[in-house]
């Protein structure tokens, strides 16, 4: 491992295990404590409800001075998440703060699923559909959730 593991990462990991957030789990890899397998459940009442989304999360060497890198591994139809699973979320970019944590970021992402923002899109095609025919877009998101985001 390149950089020694800061105490903060150990503490965050412990807290994620000991006091898990409902609907969210983050499990570090045995051979790389900075790399997490993340699972986020689609928020209830949203078109992602019932879906279980896998993400990968990596804590760079200068974490927490820079944000974790997170990406959806499960395909998802969302205006702020692109084809490669990259997420358009301010706290992952400009509005990162070292007072934020893995758990707060994952909660932000879960909240983003509940509140898609087609006005600030990362995925233009989805955002266009979302703006022009929202009910159809939501239906597509539901279908994708059934198709790709089921357990197992």
């Amino acid at each position: 491992m390149s950089a020694p593991l800061p105490k903060r990462i150990i503490k965050e990991t412990e807290r994620l295990q000991n006091e898990p957030v409902p609907g969210i789990s983050a499990q570090p890899h045995d051979d790389n404590a900075r790399y997490f397998d993340v699972m986020v459940e689609g928020p209830g009442g949203s078109c992602y409800e019932g879906g279980v989304f896998n993400l990968e999360l990596f804590l760079p060497d200068d974490y927490p001075m820079c944000p974790p890198r997170i990406r959806f591994l499960t395909r998802i139809y969302h205006p702020n998440i692109d084809r490669l699973g990259r997420i358009c979320l301010d706290v992952l970019k400009n509005n990162w703060s070292p007072a934020l944590q893995i758990r707060t970021i994952l909660l932000s992402i879960q909240a983003l699923l509940g509140a898609p923002n087609p006005e600030d899109p990362l995925n233009e095609a989805v955002a266009k559909q979302w703006k022009e025919n929202q009910s159809e877009a939501i239906e597509t998101a539901r279908e994708w959730t059934k198709l790709y985001a089921q357990k197992n």
């Binding site: 807290r15 006091e19 409902p22 702020n80 707060t104 909240a111």
Partner: peptide, 20 residues
């Protein structure tokens, strides 16, 4: 979202995050 305060565990999923 509870911040780093272990005592504050309840969350509010209705919060709107801002996309960048």
């Amino acid at each position: 979202f509870g911040g780093s305060n272990s005592g504050n565990g309840d969350t509010d999923g209705s919060e709107q995050p801002r996309t960048r």
